[in-house]
Amino acid sequence: MSDSRLHFLGTGDSEAMRFWNTNLMLESGSRRLLIDCGYTIKYALRDAGLAVPDIDAILITHTHADHAYGLERFGIETRYRYGTRVTLYAEPDVLPALWHETLKGSMGYSSDGENRLEDFFDVVAIENHSLEFADHHLRTFPTEHTGGMATYGVEIDDSVIFTADSKPLAWIAEDRSRRTILHDCSLQADNPVHATLGEIIAFYPPEVRRRMLAIHYGDDLETHRAAIERELGGVAEQGASLVL
């Protein structure tokens, strides 16, 4: 699949100003799937030479603003400016909160009256943690993030593990494949809902960390870059991509 790439549209945490929200894009031929769609997504797409109409589908891992608030712009613009609907993938336990607790406040009513999520998107509930996009197989897995919230990461083929927002995960520590791991990496000394760099180093064996790229980091990246590059495989650089 040499014509397929996973682009790092944004790599920052929710507070970052030097980096856009951590949102990825799977590009296969002429088709493009966003993995998460935070509030900075239009800027990230602009930097990649793209815009809302260039996206075919979106997968949402959880409902925090830096992963989902860009859907408001996508839904409004595709419906009223372009007359289209983007396919929206999410786990069944993510979808109710995505509408009723996240988007309905700004999208629930319009000039057409009362709306539903399906009025803006072609909504597809992910079945059995599995979906196909273009020539790729994606599998979702639960993460350890915010208590009481449904949160997921994504595996892409046999190539990539993306934790999205998560504390360290035991099954990844035992993974002996050659897959690249894009791991949530808070640069704070302590964080109750994100894996810190110190936790990653202590939790994962060196052979796993060598396949790991830090993502979802803060503006103080350069202060920690040397440690990341010494202990992990490196940094997922904004604007870079992986060939799948």
Results as ranks from 00 to 15, higher is better:
L59W: 00
L59S: 00
I60D: 01
T61G: 15
H62N: 12
H62S: 01
T63Q: 11
A65E: 15
D66L: 07
Y69V: 02
G70S: 07
L71A: 05
E72P: 07
E72I: 15
F74R: 00
F74W: 05
G75N: 01
I76K: 08
E77S: 13
Y80N: 11
Y80Q: 06
R81A: 05
Y82Q: 07
G83Q: 10
T84A: 05
T84V: 13
T87M: 04
L88P: 03
Y89G: 03
Y89M: 04
A90M: 10
A90N: 04
P92A: 06
D93C: 07
D93L: 05
V94I: 15
A97Y: 02
A97M: 09
A97R: 08
L98E: 14
W99S: 05
W99G: 04
H100S: 14
E101L: 14
T102M: 13
T102C: 14
T102K: 15
L103S: 08
L103T: 02
L103E: 06
G105Y: 11
G105P: 09
S106Q: 13
S110G: 13
D112H: 08
G113K: 05
R116W: 12
E118G: 14
D119K: 10
D119W: 07
D119R: 08
D119F: 11
D122R: 15
V123S: 01
A125M: 07
S130L: 11
L131M: 13
L131Q: 03
L131T: 12
E132Y: 07
F133D: 10
F133R: 10
F133W: 10
F133Y: 12
F133L: 10
A134F: 13
D135E: 02
H136N: 03
H137F: 00
H137P: 01
L138V: 15
T140D: 03
F141L: 09
P142L: 00
E144T: 11
H145I: 02
T146R: 12
G148V: 01
M149Y: 02
A150K: 11
A150L: 12
T151Q: 10
Y152A: 11
Y152W: 09
V154A: 04
V154C: 09
E155P: 11
I156S: 01
I156M: 03
F162W: 12
A164W: 06
A164T: 06
D165R: 08
D165I: 12
S166R: 08
S166C: 08
P168E: 13
L169M: 11
L169K: 02
A170F: 09
W171Q: 09
I172Y: 00
E174G: 11
R176D: 12
R176A: 12
R179M: 11
T180H: 03
